[in-house]
Amino acid sequence: MSDNKGPISHAQHFYANWVRNLRETAGYTQQTLAKNMGVHRSFVSHIESGKRAISVDTIGQFRLALITGEADKPPFRQRVGTRLQNARLNFSPRLSQEALSEMAGCSVGYVAKVENASVSTTVIRLERLASSLKIEISVLLDDLP
């Protein structure tokens, strides 16, 4: 996951607030949550402030730590990739990975990796893919509150 270089996107802002609200509702400090996740407190702070881009894997980690507390089967990244693929194939007219990559301004290899869950995308990139498919990012992340 990389640092956020540009202005914070709507999705980035939404999930930063989502993490903070869930953490506060659970009664955790950033330190306690970080310890439960096996990360440094500054990681949680940077996610909540939008200073660090949040990936699908990170959303899955927060989801586990704050909501379910149990094994994530199938992995969240895999479910997001499957949803992206289904949205692409159900788009009218049906889109190839190449066509979606051109629309979203990324490589066809990147689209393939997101769909087969071999890479964790950031919400910023996932938002671009969703926007290209004329859907809300929540369609791809639908089991989150």
Rank of each mutant, 00 (worst) to 15 (best):
V19T: 14
N90S: 12
E48S: 09
A71T: 10
A112H: 08
H10C: 04
D142K: 11
G60A: 08
Q12A: 13
T122Y: 00
A71S: 09
S45R: 11
G60Y: 07
V119S: 15
V119N: 15
K51Q: 09
I8G: 01
A34H: 12
A16L: 02
G50K: 05
T82F: 07
I67N: 08
S45G: 13
K5E: 06
Q97N: 07
L144D: 12
A99R: 12
F43K: 13
G109Y: 02
E24P: 02
A112D: 07
L84K: 14
A16E: 01
I137H: 08
I54W: 01
V123N: 13
R77K: 08
R41A: 15
K51C: 02
Q31R: 13
A87R: 11
T82K: 13
W18S: 02
M37W: 05
A117N: 10
E136N: 14
V123H: 11
E70F: 05
V108I: 10
E127M: 04
F14P: 01
L144C: 11
K134G: 02
L95N: 15
I135R: 03
K134V: 00
S120T: 12
A112G: 15
Q61G: 06
A87S: 13
I137P: 06
R79T: 09
A130T: 03
V39S: 13
F14W: 13
F14M: 13
R52H: 09
M37R: 14
K51P: 00
L84G: 14
K134T: 06
E24M: 12
C106V: 13
Q78E: 07
H46Y: 08
M1L: 04
T29D: 08
V139R: 14
R41E: 14
E136F: 06
N116T: 08
V111Y: 04
S118I: 00
L22M: 10
